[in-house]
Simulated scan of single mutants.
Amino acid sequence: MLAFHYDNHVLPLPPGHRFPQSKYRLLREHFLRQPGGLGLSLAPAATEAELLLAHTPEHVDAVLQGHLGAAAQREIGFPWSPAMAERSRRSVGATIAAARAALAEGVAASLAGGTHHAYADKGSGFCVFNDVAVAARLMQAEWCRSQRSQLHVLVIDLDVHQGNGTASIFRGDDTVFTFSMHGEKNFPFRKEASDLDVGLPDGCGDADYLAALDGALDEVWRRLVLCPPGLAFYLAGADPHEGDRLGRLKLTHAGLAERDRRVLAALRERRIPVALSMAGGYGHDLATTVAAQVNTLNLAADSWAAWQRMKECPA
């Protein structure tokens, strides 16, 4: 399974900043030592034209040319720098590459991404550009050119924080179905309306979480029966884990793994290709976050292998 990374582009952050950027390097280094079913590849940078598929010209220009004001930088949570702009382009490029690979092979991943708090006209919450939104728009455009038909997209966002930027960008668009299951009382405190939102109480554990997920997925399939998606984006956040600093839910490693199995199996059974993003994860012990993401990627590689067997024996 192809997995795209870009952690060589480091954010110059002030001492004590709470964004755990070292987790991306640690994740890549794990798979360099133990690749399993993953093939690592350096992510390309998204072009300005690609970014404009989901973002306003003013926002793209402000980021790429260094015109972000102080208030905009505070809302994002990062100071502007050339490295910040380049890293943001690579974040989108990794998800674009994963989406193309997923359409060809069934499953692919970005070792980061999931920047779902970015709106069309601004960044927010450690998210500069919305990688899933740009990749979805680009895949739809490429599909229309090659297949002469509409590509319907499903976003399954299981980061512990609601995907407010994604919901806003795709509001009223019946070609993209947005589903977010998140901590009801967690950031963002002003939620946007996804096509399906499931808010969970603080302290929600494995059993209640998985029951809510099963019910939500049943509702997704019911509502998409007439327009089944041809591509899914799965934001497999590690931050619902009980050891997360910002999550406030109580999932164990086993619960997160079962979440991933159920999502990947449901997509595979319906022959829906999926591009994964690792999204959030802010463990008190960062090794806990990395371990959760390693589990997710190994399960994704298993699903990729099952896709290849289905291609060999379609009956």
Rank of each mutant, 00 (worst) to 15 (best):
F78E: 04
L297T: 09
R25H: 08
A46V: 01
A193E: 14
G123K: 05
G165R: 06
L246Y: 13
G36V: 00
S88Y: 05
L217D: 14
L11E: 01
G39V: 13
R309T: 06
A97C: 09
D121M: 00
P57K: 08
M278I: 07
G199A: 02
A133D: 13
D195H: 15
W307C: 14
L151H: 08
Q293I: 00
V134K: 01
G69F: 06
E269A: 13
L27V: 02
A98K: 00
A211I: 07
E184H: 11
L299F: 04
K191M: 03
G255R: 01
A141N: 03
A305T: 06
E219I: 07
H182Y: 15
C204A: 08
M278F: 11
L224S: 07
R261D: 08
M1V: 13
M181A: 03
G77E: 12
A306I: 00
A3Y: 08
Q73K: 10
I76K: 02
P273M: 00
L231Q: 04
L249K: 05
N295Q: 15
G123M: 11
A292W: 10
A254H: 03
G106L: 01
A216H: 02
D159I: 00
L200D: 02
I96V: 15
A212T: 12
N186T: 10
L256G: 10
D197I: 00
K191I: 08
D159A: 12
L200N: 02
F19N: 04
D159T: 07
M1Y: 10
C313F: 14
D260Q: 06
G36F: 08
T178M: 06
G16R: 03
E86K: 13
Q140W: 12
D218G: 14
L267Y: 07
T288F: 09
L196R: 15
V225L: 00
R100M: 01
L213D: 04
G16T: 08
M84C: 14
L64W: 00
K23D: 10
A70G: 08
Q21V: 07
I156S: 01
E269W: 04
S91R: 07
D173G: 05
R74G: 01
V107E: 01
S41K: 04
I156L: 15
K311A: 13
L297F: 12
Q162N: 07
P273E: 02
V290C: 13
G165A: 14
R25T: 10
L224Q: 11
E29P: 09
L235V: 14
L235Q: 15
D174I: 06
